[in-house]
Protein backbone atom coordinates (compact mmCIF):
# COMPACT_ATOMS: atom_id res chain seq x y z
CA UNK A 1 0.00 0.00 0.00
CA UNK A 2 1.49 3.31 -1.02
CA UNK A 3 1.50 6.29 1.23
CA UNK A 4 0.06 9.64 0.28
CA UNK A 5 1.14 12.99 1.64
CA UNK A 6 0.07 16.60 1.80
CA UNK A 7 2.69 19.11 0.73
CA UNK A 8 3.11 22.86 0.82
CA UNK A 9 4.72 24.01 -2.42
CA UNK A 10 6.35 27.39 -2.85
CA UNK A 11 6.80 27.92 -6.57
CA UNK A 12 8.29 30.78 -8.58
CA UNK A 13 5.56 32.23 -10.81
CA UNK A 14 6.53 34.62 -13.55
CA UNK A 15 4.13 35.43 -16.38
CA UNK A 16 6.78 36.32 -18.96
CA UNK A 17 10.41 37.28 -19.38
CA UNK A 18 9.70 40.95 -18.82
CA UNK A 19 7.32 40.79 -15.87
CA UNK A 20 8.64 40.43 -12.34
CA UNK A 21 7.95 37.11 -10.66
CA UNK A 22 7.37 36.00 -7.09
CA UNK A 23 7.09 32.88 -4.94
CA UNK A 24 3.50 31.59 -4.64
CA UNK A 25 2.32 29.05 -2.10
CA UNK A 26 0.14 26.05 -3.01
CA UNK A 27 -1.21 23.27 -0.85
CA UNK A 28 -1.32 19.88 -2.58
CA UNK A 29 -3.08 16.88 -1.07
CA UNK A 30 -2.96 13.22 -2.01
CA UNK A 31 0.58 13.11 -3.36
CA UNK A 32 1.52 9.45 -3.91
CA UNK A 33 5.01 8.48 -2.76
CA UNK A 34 5.64 6.62 -6.05
CA UNK A 35 5.09 9.73 -8.16
CA UNK A 36 8.09 11.38 -9.73
CA UNK A 37 8.62 15.04 -8.88
CA UNK A 38 7.30 16.04 -12.30
CA UNK A 39 4.22 13.83 -11.89
CA UNK A 40 3.58 15.62 -8.62
CA UNK A 41 3.69 18.92 -10.58
CA UNK A 42 1.32 17.36 -13.17
CA UNK A 43 -1.14 16.69 -10.35
CA UNK A 44 -0.79 20.27 -9.14
CA UNK A 45 -1.34 21.57 -12.69
CA UNK A 46 -4.44 19.41 -13.18
CA UNK A 47 -5.81 20.88 -9.96
CA UNK A 48 -4.90 24.47 -10.98
CA UNK A 49 -6.47 23.98 -14.41
CA UNK A 50 -9.67 22.62 -12.86
CA UNK A 51 -9.77 25.67 -10.60
CA UNK A 52 -9.38 27.96 -13.61
CA UNK A 53 -5.83 29.01 -12.68
CA UNK A 54 -2.79 29.16 -14.92
CA UNK A 55 -0.79 25.90 -14.60
CA UNK A 56 2.88 26.06 -13.63
CA UNK A 57 5.08 26.04 -16.73
CA UNK A 58 8.08 23.70 -16.47
CA UNK A 59 10.41 22.09 -19.00
CA UNK A 60 10.22 18.33 -19.45
CA UNK A 61 10.61 15.79 -22.21
CA UNK A 62 11.93 12.25 -21.77
CA UNK A 63 11.21 11.93 -18.04
CA UNK A 64 13.87 9.24 -17.84
CA UNK A 65 16.86 11.34 -16.93
CA UNK A 66 18.61 11.60 -20.30
CA UNK A 67 17.23 14.59 -22.18
CA UNK A 68 18.32 17.39 -19.88
CA UNK A 69 15.05 19.29 -20.14
CA UNK A 70 13.90 19.40 -16.53
CA UNK A 71 15.49 22.35 -14.86
CA UNK A 72 14.38 23.46 -11.45
CA UNK A 73 16.08 24.39 -8.23
CA UNK A 74 14.34 22.40 -5.50
CA UNK A 75 14.95 23.53 -1.91
CA UNK A 76 18.05 25.46 -2.94
CA UNK A 77 19.58 22.65 -5.00
CA UNK A 78 19.43 22.13 -8.78
CA UNK A 79 17.43 18.92 -9.47
CA UNK A 80 16.75 18.55 -5.74
CA UNK A 81 18.41 16.76 -2.85
CA UNK A 82 19.55 13.46 -4.41
CA UNK A 83 23.03 13.22 -5.97
CA UNK A 84 23.29 12.17 -9.62
CA UNK A 85 19.53 12.48 -10.15
CA UNK A 86 17.54 14.69 -12.50
CA UNK A 87 14.32 16.27 -11.21
CA UNK A 88 12.26 13.80 -13.28
CA UNK A 89 13.99 10.87 -11.59
CA UNK A 90 13.44 12.30 -8.13
CA UNK A 91 10.58 10.48 -6.44
CA UNK A 92 8.19 11.76 -3.83
CA UNK A 93 9.24 9.02 -1.41
CA UNK A 94 12.19 11.32 -0.76
CA UNK A 95 9.72 13.60 1.05
CA UNK A 96 7.37 13.09 3.94
CA UNK A 97 3.88 14.23 4.79
CA UNK A 98 3.69 17.92 5.75
CA UNK A 99 6.95 18.94 4.00
CA UNK A 100 7.33 22.37 2.45
CA UNK A 101 9.18 22.32 -0.89
CA UNK A 102 10.48 25.41 -2.70
CA UNK A 103 10.87 25.34 -6.48
CA UNK A 104 12.42 28.05 -8.64
CA UNK A 105 14.09 28.27 -12.05
CA UNK A 106 17.82 28.24 -12.90
CA UNK A 107 19.15 31.73 -12.26
CA UNK A 108 21.73 33.11 -14.67
CA UNK A 109 22.02 36.04 -17.05
CA UNK A 110 22.62 33.49 -19.83
CA UNK A 111 19.40 31.62 -18.86
CA UNK A 112 16.60 34.22 -19.07
CA UNK A 113 13.28 33.06 -17.63
CA UNK A 114 10.65 32.45 -20.33
CA UNK A 115 7.82 31.60 -17.95
CA UNK A 116 7.61 30.29 -14.38
CA UNK A 117 10.24 27.52 -14.18
CA UNK A 118 11.13 27.51 -17.88
CA UNK A 119 14.39 29.20 -18.86
CA UNK A 120 15.96 29.71 -22.28
CA UNK A 121 19.12 27.59 -22.44
CA UNK A 122 20.00 28.35 -26.07
CA UNK A 123 23.24 29.89 -24.76
CA UNK A 124 24.54 26.35 -24.13
CA UNK A 125 23.60 25.36 -27.69
CA UNK A 126 25.54 28.34 -29.02
CA UNK A 127 28.62 27.27 -27.02
CA UNK A 128 28.39 23.82 -28.64
CA UNK A 129 27.74 25.34 -32.09
CA UNK A 130 30.95 27.37 -31.70
CA UNK A 131 33.09 24.22 -31.76
CA UNK A 132 31.62 21.23 -29.94
CA UNK A 133 31.57 18.99 -33.00
CA UNK A 134 33.84 17.17 -35.44
CA UNK A 135 33.67 17.97 -39.17
CA UNK A 136 33.36 14.79 -41.22
CA UNK A 137 32.22 14.23 -44.77
CA UNK A 138 29.21 11.99 -44.69
CA UNK A 139 29.19 8.82 -46.78
CA UNK A 140 29.37 5.16 -46.08
CA UNK A 141 29.30 4.27 -42.40
CA UNK A 142 32.79 3.22 -41.34
CA UNK A 143 33.36 0.00 -39.49
CA UNK A 144 33.05 0.47 -35.75
CA UNK A 145 36.56 -0.89 -35.16
CA UNK A 146 38.24 1.03 -37.98
CA UNK A 147 39.71 3.56 -35.53
CA UNK A 148 41.17 1.85 -32.47
CA UNK A 149 40.73 3.85 -29.25
CA UNK A 150 42.37 2.93 -25.96
CA UNK A 151 40.06 1.74 -23.21
CA UNK A 152 41.02 4.55 -20.83
CA UNK A 153 40.48 7.28 -23.43
CA UNK A 154 37.20 5.73 -24.54
CA UNK A 155 35.99 5.58 -20.93
CA UNK A 156 36.95 9.19 -20.21
CA UNK A 157 35.37 10.39 -23.45
CA UNK A 158 32.17 8.55 -22.55
CA UNK A 159 32.16 10.03 -19.05
CA UNK A 160 32.37 13.55 -20.48
CA UNK A 161 29.87 12.72 -23.23
CA UNK A 162 27.36 11.81 -20.51
CA UNK A 163 26.63 15.55 -20.13
CA UNK A 164 22.99 16.15 -21.02
CA UNK A 165 23.35 19.92 -21.17
CA UNK A 166 20.71 20.56 -18.49
CA UNK A 167 22.55 23.56 -17.03
CA UNK A 168 22.50 22.39 -13.40
CA UNK A 169 26.23 23.23 -13.19
CA UNK A 170 25.49 26.85 -14.05
CA UNK A 171 22.54 26.92 -11.65
CA UNK A 172 24.64 25.46 -8.82
CA UNK A 173 27.69 27.67 -9.36
CA UNK A 174 27.88 30.71 -7.07
CA UNK A 175 29.26 32.53 -10.13
CA UNK A 176 26.82 31.08 -12.71
CA UNK A 177 29.81 29.71 -14.61
CA UNK A 178 29.40 27.22 -17.47
CA UNK A 179 32.95 25.89 -17.31
CA UNK A 180 31.94 22.36 -16.26
CA UNK A 181 29.59 22.15 -19.25
CA UNK A 182 32.14 23.60 -21.69
CA UNK A 183 34.89 21.43 -20.20
CA UNK A 184 32.76 18.30 -20.64
CA UNK A 185 32.07 19.14 -24.27
CA UNK A 186 35.74 19.91 -24.99
CA UNK A 187 36.85 16.87 -22.98
CA UNK A 188 34.68 14.34 -24.73
CA UNK A 189 36.11 15.24 -28.14
CA UNK A 190 39.71 15.82 -27.08
CA UNK A 191 39.93 12.25 -25.77
CA UNK A 192 39.09 10.81 -29.20
CA UNK A 193 41.18 10.66 -32.39
CA UNK A 194 38.33 12.24 -34.35
CA UNK A 195 38.57 15.32 -32.15
CA UNK A 196 42.23 16.06 -32.81
CA UNK A 197 41.96 17.90 -36.14
CA UNK A 198 39.93 20.80 -34.77
CA UNK A 199 41.33 20.55 -31.25
CA UNK A 200 42.90 24.00 -30.99
CA UNK A 201 40.23 26.12 -32.65
CA UNK A 202 37.48 24.25 -30.82
CA UNK A 203 38.52 25.20 -27.30
CA UNK A 204 39.33 28.79 -28.28
CA UNK A 205 35.99 29.38 -29.97
CA UNK A 206 33.93 27.60 -27.32
CA UNK A 207 35.51 29.60 -24.49
CA UNK A 208 35.08 32.81 -26.48
CA UNK A 209 31.39 32.01 -26.98
CA UNK A 210 30.98 30.96 -23.35
CA UNK A 211 32.33 34.34 -22.23
CA UNK A 212 30.18 36.19 -24.77
CA UNK A 213 27.03 34.54 -23.39
CA UNK A 214 27.66 36.20 -20.03
CA UNK A 215 28.46 33.13 -17.92
CA UNK A 216 30.65 33.72 -14.88
CA UNK A 217 34.13 32.34 -14.21
CA UNK A 218 35.07 29.32 -12.13
CA UNK A 219 36.46 30.06 -8.66
CA UNK A 220 36.76 26.39 -7.76
CA UNK A 221 33.80 25.99 -5.40
CA UNK A 222 33.18 22.53 -6.95
CA UNK A 223 29.41 22.90 -6.52
CA UNK A 224 28.87 22.18 -10.25
CA UNK A 225 30.10 18.59 -10.27
CA UNK A 226 28.24 17.90 -7.02
CA UNK A 227 24.98 19.12 -8.58
CA UNK A 228 25.52 17.42 -11.95
CA UNK A 229 22.89 14.70 -12.49
CA UNK A 230 25.42 12.84 -14.66
CA UNK A 231 28.19 13.36 -12.09
CA UNK A 232 30.61 14.89 -14.59
CA UNK A 233 33.97 15.12 -12.82
CA UNK A 234 35.39 18.47 -11.76
CA UNK A 235 38.37 17.37 -13.88
CA UNK A 236 36.42 18.81 -16.83
CA UNK A 237 37.34 22.35 -15.73
CA UNK A 238 40.95 21.44 -15.09
CA UNK A 239 41.00 19.91 -18.60
CA UNK A 240 39.37 23.01 -20.09
CA UNK A 241 42.00 25.27 -18.51
CA UNK A 242 44.78 23.01 -19.74
CA UNK A 243 43.38 22.76 -23.29
CA UNK A 244 42.87 26.53 -23.41
CA UNK A 245 46.45 27.22 -22.30
CA UNK A 246 47.77 24.59 -24.72
CA UNK A 247 45.84 26.20 -27.59
CA UNK A 248 47.49 29.54 -26.87
CA UNK A 249 50.96 28.07 -26.45
CA UNK A 250 51.01 25.82 -29.52
CA UNK A 251 49.80 28.44 -32.02
CA UNK A 252 49.43 27.51 -35.65
Amino acid sequence: MSKTMTLTLQIWRQRSANTPGSMQTYKLEGVNEHMSFLEMLDVLNAKLTKEGQDPVAFDHDCREGICGSCSMVIDGRPHGPRKGTTACQLHMRTYKDGDTITIEPWRAKAFPVIKDLVVDRASLDRVVAAGGFVSVNTGVTVDANATPIGKKDADEAMDYAACIGCGACVAACPNASAMLFTGAKVGHLVKLPQGQVERRGRVLRMVEQMDREGFGACTNHRECSEACPKEISFDAIELLNREYMRAHVTGE
Binding site: P174, H221, E223
Partner: peptide, 29 residues
Protein backbone atom coordinates in the same frame (compact mmCIF):
# COMPACT_ATOMS: atom_id res chain seq x y z
CA UNK B 1 36.36 38.36 -12.33
CA UNK B 2 34.16 39.50 -9.45
CA UNK B 3 32.41 41.97 -11.74
CA UNK B 4 31.87 39.30 -14.43
CA UNK B 5 30.61 36.83 -11.81
CA UNK B 6 28.22 39.31 -10.23
CA UNK B 7 26.81 40.23 -13.62
CA UNK B 8 26.41 36.55 -14.53
CA UNK B 9 23.51 36.25 -12.08
CA UNK B 10 21.57 39.54 -12.08
CA UNK B 11 18.61 38.05 -10.23
CA UNK B 12 19.48 36.18 -7.06
CA UNK B 13 17.74 32.98 -5.98
CA UNK B 14 14.62 33.63 -3.93
CA UNK B 15 15.53 30.76 -1.61
CA UNK B 16 19.12 30.61 -0.33
CA UNK B 17 21.00 27.80 -2.05
CA UNK B 18 22.15 24.84 0.01
CA UNK B 19 25.77 24.33 -0.93
CA UNK B 20 27.29 20.87 -0.81
CA UNK B 21 31.08 21.22 -0.80
CA UNK B 22 32.18 24.84 -1.00
CA UNK B 23 33.79 26.45 2.04
CA UNK B 24 33.47 29.89 3.66
CA UNK B 25 37.10 30.47 2.62
CA UNK B 26 36.13 29.95 -1.03
CA UNK B 27 33.01 32.07 -0.79
CA UNK B 28 34.66 35.05 0.88
CA UNK B 29 37.91 35.20 -1.10
Amino acid sequence: LKKINNEARPQAYAVPRRYRVTTPAARFM
